[in-house]
Write a protein that binds this DNA or RNA. Structure first.
Lengths: 231, 231
DNA sequence: CTTGACTTTGAACAATTGTTCTGATATATT
DNA sequence: AATATATCAGAACAATTGTTCAAAGTCAAG
């Protein structure tokens, strides 16, 4: 009954839905016979046939001669259902970063490796890998918690968790954590190299920039990748 | 050589590490023979023996007569390694919320159910379940993206994703999205009911509060649960 | 109608995989 | 030393599971 060329038939859809539900339930993939059983097909070869198609359509991957090796690569979304604004569960890779310390204006920031980086083992931040910019090396990231109101001009509040990437230079437009030798404090600002001087722009558009004439007077500690605020 | 009663032998540790690595790599569990092969044991029964022990120790679960059905239940942590401030992967439940729309000062905010809630199917936010406050009903949450600089006094920037919980009343100290009839605009403020009046306090400590004498002039749309900023 | 591409069945086969059993070896306990 | 318990090897077995093939049915287009 379904002769739709490259499109998804009803069987394909039911297979994808079953795969998701089954994996959600059992943490591993169903066997071919289990799939066939669920969509009302006795023939294992037919299920194999469907799976091959779904694989070519880019919905899943599987490894030859390995049982229960189906991986869902692309999530199937039901076009009919008015389910656009619905939550969905998935099991995914999550990166757990310990919170290395507090970022305070009056002190240099703790970074990985430095042994002052002990704080509260219980505290950590979890981020799905997909939520991170694709090319980040996830081991170069670290997390600090903001202490006090000193970062308000960066639109960052007391208690916010800030995810940094280790760096000692920055490109224009990056938000960076910098240590200013003159003022002896750490601050979070947008970075702009204007040739003769460096402009540090607060995120808050109602506030004016800081200019640094001598590049040696500032030390870049890291780029801000993400800010997370819990309430 | 290892006769440690209920403790973990070196083999057990290597199995746990192998399981994690293998699952990380392939998204499914290794077979018993693959495990044996990796830890240098030919006998499948011996591997089964170890697995049974690990299962009793609460490290993993598996289903009878189902291939590749090993689930890691408890993460094995190497006591030796100085791995406190290191990243770790885990596979976890992740909730995916579609971004329902933009929040703009001059318009009421779109909420789930209302049909104006169509925006960009591609855009979504993923949050590990553990990162949400425990008792949140995850279906009551929805996500909006902030448009423009109108929420700066809530320390929220253009482009930030705000996670709301549906609500029409609030407790003192909650940050809420409110629609002000008088000003005809949506705003994000901390909510304080002071009896005779309601005080709406900006998050930015340098700014002053708004007072509303008549409770009917404001409509609470939702509580802010989380703010996420990507850079 | 005929062709051809797509779909389906059923069965048999072969590979993978979990389970079990017998016996050996080692380590600890009495 | 004697006994019990824990650890290990090897093999055989049975169940599960992926693969393949031959043949038939279905449908749309020429």
């Amino acid at each position: 009954m379904a002769r739709k060329g490259k499109l998804m038939g009803e069987r394909h859809q039911r297979i994808m839905q079953f795969l998701e539900a089954y994996q959600q339930e059992n943490q591993y993939s169903p066997s071919i016979r289990e799939i066939g059983n669920h969509i009302g097909v006795q023939s294992t070869s037919l299920v194999d046939y469907y799976l091959r198609q779904l694989s070519e359509m880019g919905y899943l991957e599987r490894d030859d001669r390995v049982s229960r090796s189906i991986r869902i690569v692309k999530q199937y979304v039901d076009g009919n259902k008015h389910s656009k604004n619905a939550v969905s569960y998935i099991r995914q890779d999550v990166l757990r970063y310990p919170v290395l310390g507090r970022i305070v204006a009056s002190e240099p920031i703790p970074v990985p490796g430095s042994d002052l980086a002990y704080y509260d083992q219980e505290s950590y931040v979890e981020i799905p890998r997909k939520m991170l910019p694709g090319n980040e090396k996830e081991t170069e990231l670290f997390v600090l918690e903001v202490s006090g109101d000193s970062m308000v001009d960066a639109m960052i509040n007391d208690g916010d968790k800030v995810v940094f990437r280790q760096a000692n230079k920055a490109s224009n437009g990056d938000m960076v954590a910098v240590w200013l030798d003159n003022d002896e404090e750490t601050t979070l600002k947008y970075f702009y190299n204007e040739g003769s001087r460096i402009r540090l722009q607060p995120a808050n558009p109602t506030m004016g920039p800081i200019y640094v004439e001598d590049p040696k007077q500032l030390r870049i500690m890291g780029k801000v990748v993400m800010v997370i605020r819990h309430l």
